[in-house]
Design a protein around this nucleic acid. Structure first.
Length: 410
RNA sequence: GCCAGGGUGGGGUAGUUGGACAUCCUAGGGGACUGUGGAUCCCUCGACCCGGGUUCGAAUCCCGGCCCUGGCCCCA
């Protein structure tokens, strides 16, 4: 038998309803902060992603050559496509640009809990602004989105400037290696590496830096940081907005295009793959031939949010189904049309079953049964049966519709 | 790429010191039943992950692969 590709998932209606509900919550938060949805192709020129992240990522992407010989890739993330979109079409849009997206992405990696080869990301990009207010807003939106969904998480906020300041005496390649060790929390490896390049002196200050838990700690360690004012402002804004967070100046985010504030959020109840959001301030547009605009953004791992939330109940549309005798079928169809026109999902029997069997089936799927036979047809009414309580009464169609609506969505 | 544990009808399971038609529940389909049946009765569909090997005989033992679940690595 054919099976679905490794690392992918099928979703049955119940789970889809749960996913759509959470998705709608995220969209609503994004929209509420003034972000509007954009959509980019599911595949792009491979170069778009290697420009952003380096050749090394090719082995973790779904790549292919199209019939014209072009090297293509399924998108492994959405920031690069959105910035490409900005460079192509966004130049004349007034800044700052607030965009959000909800897209599926693809990575060829070994699947495990919270990691799939096809996964969904909700993210925002704030293009053309990287002020402290912009940086703070980005974190606030991420926080609001996760909070609205009911996720329990911890937000760690940092800034690249202090670390770059400490490492300013090193060449860029060495800086990256050091930041790699710090990102992995491999302190033994770090010490060994620093020794190998004869910069043991950096070890203590680096360890001091990552031990900082607030800006006061930080500036007692480094008092001549040029970015001091803006950094203080970001954290002050977060405090004023009462966005819970911890400071962590060891966040390196492993990429060169991040330029300032960086942040990561971790779900409280997940295993190895517990990072549910990541973002920061970056400069990327110039790589794609655009103007060099500062931007901020984040991406939420939607599937991890779903894993973290578990099996929560979701409001469901109240639904009805017609149980009718064959002779009254035409009248029943008319009644069903009226219910549907009022926004109530309504089914009719397709199996030519008896009235009893129709009711038996409806009891498993619907909230209300609309029993329709000769009696109802002659009087122009419907017998409305609440399938949860078993109560039933004869009502004119409009009154029956009101009754179902009054029952409300569950 | 590495480590551990697992794969029996659609879902959940019994059975593995090798031995007959592979157990049960549930879901699905058909019929009886024709104004209340989420019922009852009858019938039915449907599985040992794949490929080799050992053996008279393999769901059961061995090897390889695939997939699943965790973890490591990576994580844009």
């Amino acid at each position: 038998m054919l099976q679905r590709p490794r690392g992918t998932r099928d979703f049955l209606p119940e789970e889809m309803e749960r996913r759509r509900c959470i998705e709608a919550t995220m969209r609503k938060v994004g929209r509420g902060w003034g972000y509007r949805e954009v959509c980019t192709p599911v595949f792009e020129d491979l170069e778009l992603f290697t420009l952003r992240s380096g050749e090394g990522i090719i082995q973790e992407m779904y790549t292919f050559e199209d019939k014209g010989g072009r090297k293509q890739a399924l998108r492994p993330e959405v920031t690069a496509p959105v910035l490409r979109l900005f460079v192509n079409e966004g130049r004349t849009i007034p800044k700052p640009i607030r965009w959000y997206y909800f897209c599926d992405c693809f990575r060829y990696e070994r699947p495990q809990k919270g990691r799939y080869r096809e996964f969904w990301q909700f993210g925002v990009e704030l293009i053309g602004a990287d002020s402290p207010h912009a940086e703070a807003e980005t974190i606030m939106v991420a926080d609001a989105a996760l909070r609205a969904c009911g996720v329990s998480f911890e937000m760690k906020v940092g800034h690249l400037a202090p670390m770059k300041h400490l490492l300013s005496g090193l060449e860029l390649v060495f800086q990256r290696i050091v930041m790699g060790y710090l990102d992995k929390k491999d302190f033994d490896g770090l010490a060994a590496y620093l020794a190998s390049i004869h910069r043991e002196d950096l070890y203590d200050s680096l360890m001091g830096l990552i031990a900082c838990r607030n800006v006061e700690d930080l500036f007692s360690l480094i008092d001549n940081l040029p970015e001091r004012k803006r950094l203080e402002k970001v954290f002050a804004l977060l405090d004023q907005a009462e966005v819970p967070h911890t400071c962590n100046f060891g966040i390196a985010r492993g990429l060169d295009y991040y330029t300032g504030m960086v942040f990561e959020g971790f779900a409280d109840n997940l295993g190895a793959e517990n990072q549910i959001v990541g973002g920061g301030t970056y400069r990327l547009a110039h790589l794609f031939g655009g103007e060099d605009v500062g931007s901020c953004g984040f991406a939420i791992g939607f599937d991890r949010v779903m894993v973290s939330l578990g099996e929560m109940p979701v409001p469901r549309l109240v639904s009805a189904g017609v149980a009718s005798t064959e002779e009254s079928r035409n009248y029943a169809m008319r009644v069903a049309r009226g219910f549907r026109a009022s926004g109530i999902p309504t089914t009719v029997d397709l199996m030519e079953r008896g009235l009893g069997a129709q009711l038996a089936h409806l009891a498993k799927e619907a909230d209300f049964a609309l029993i329709i036979g000769r009696r109802e047809q002659e009087k122009g009414v419907v017998t409305l049966k609440n399938l949860h309580t078993g109560e039933q009464k004869e009502l004119p169609v409009p009154a029956a519709i009101d009754e179902v609506k009054r029952f409300g969505d569950r």
